[in-house]
Amino acid sequence: MGRHKQDKQLVKQLLKGQTQAFNTFFDSYHSKLFRFILGRVDGDHDLAMDLAQETLCKALDNLQDYRAEAALFTWMCQIARSFIYAHFSKQNRRRRHVVPMAEHPSIREVLLNVADGGQTQPELQMHNQELQQLIEEVLDHLPNNYGDLLTWKYVDELSVEEMAQKANTTMIAIQSALARARQSFQQAFTALLKTDSLDHLYPSNWEYEYE
C-alpha cells in the first residue's frame, strides 16, 4: 500500500460528496481533534469542541489542497494549531497547552517511573491528567488505527476475539496488528523521551499499513 493511500481515497470520496465518506471522516477525526485541542487549551471542553468543529470545516473547505504528503490527521492538526494560535492571539492570552510537557522534568520523571513499573509518587499525582493526555495524543497519532486497537486492549479490555469481531477481521490478523501497534507506541514514546517537543513525534513519512 502506498503512503497515506487510504487518506487520499477518503479525500477523493469526500470531494465527490459521498455521505458515507463524511461519516467515516467525522467519526475518525472529530474525537481525535477534540483531544488534540483539549490538551492545548487548558482542558476547556467547550473551546476544544468549537475549535475541533472549525478545524473540520476548514479542512473540508481545503480538501483539494491536501497532497497526502502527511497523514490527513497530521494535516488537520496543523490547521487546529493555527486556530488555537489565532484564538489565543485574539484573546490576547498566553498559550496554555501541554506541548512543552515532554520537556518538563517532572513529567519526564513520571514517564520513566511509570515505564519502569514503579508506583506513582503522591507528589507526582498532579501530573496524572497531563500523563493521560500525553498517552492519548500519542495513541491518536499512531498510524493504521493502532490507537483504537490499543484502546480496545488496554482501556476497554476486549479479548482478541471481540476485537476481531469489532474490526471485522480474523483473530490472527488482530494479534499481528496488536503486536505492530505496541511496537509503534513503543517507538513513539521512545522518541518522546528523547525530544523537546511533541511536534517531532509524528513523522510525516510513517508508513501506513492496513490489514
Binding site: 477534540f34 511509570v114 515505564a115 493526555q133 495513541l139 482501556v155 505496541r182 514514546f189
Partner: peptide, 19 residues
Amino acid sequence: MNKDQADNILKQLKQRTMP
C-alpha cells in the same frame, strides 16, 4: 524503552477522553 515499559505506560490509560 522496551516492550514491557511501553506496556506499563499503556496500562496507565484509564479511559479515553471523549467529547
